[in-house]
Design a protein around this nucleic acid. Sequence first.
DNA 1: CCGACCTGTAATGTTTTTATTACAGGTGCA
DNA 2: TGCACCTGTAATAAAAACATTACAGGTCGG
Lengths: 99, 99
Amino acid sequence: MNAVELSGKLAAIASPHRMRIIAMLQGEPLHVSELARRMEMSRALLYMHLSKLEDAGFVTGHLELSDDGKALKLFEVLPFVLNIDPAMIVNAISQQESE
Amino acid sequence: MNAVELSGKLAAIASPHRMRIIAMLQGEPLHVSELARRMEMSRALLYMHLSKLEDAGFVTGHLELSDDGKALKLFEVLPFVLNIDPAMIVNAISQQESE
DNA sequence: CCGACCTGTAATGTTTTTATTACAGGTGCA
DNA sequence: TGCACCTGTAATAAAAACATTACAGGTCGG
């Protein structure tokens, strides 16, 4: 992982709102409207945060049909681990590309 | 470490410029002007980035006298480790305060 | 005294991020 | 048909981050 990719991922979690989203989804997938209620946040804003988390690979969402036939967009946390220390920063900077 | 502190630290490293600063200082403390030359960056801008890194506890700087008596502000990397995964995010969110 | 270094920051402009509001459209059910 | 849900996004405003320029002041050596 190069420096740009790494900083992108770090920026994606470096937000109290987004960390709270991860904490709420952890172990309990929720659909957008329900999550918006629990976060006490507008859906539009929540979508913005969810997009950043999804782009960075921390969460994933998919449409699903509820029991009564309504479409729900369920989001869940993807497993991830990032060990940040000086050596891995040096390593990221020295990477020109590659995943 | 609570969510606000953690997001502050993550935001501080979530920048290619600042990651590069850490990489350059790692193992070789440098004074501001010299680092500015190697980074090809203005001192004013470098100070802004260094302040963020110092506030977050990733680097530290102190004045020191060179051999010919001039004052130099030497910066060096402080050891740090951050293991980021869903569980530690949940933990950070559940912390109300404490260091 | 002057030139070549160094530190430190204020003021300003630009860009990006964050947040709000408003809209369009869908399903199920009484 | 009207109500209560849901998804999705465009347009806009407000706030924060980033970057540049310009200045003030210090030490040293020729």
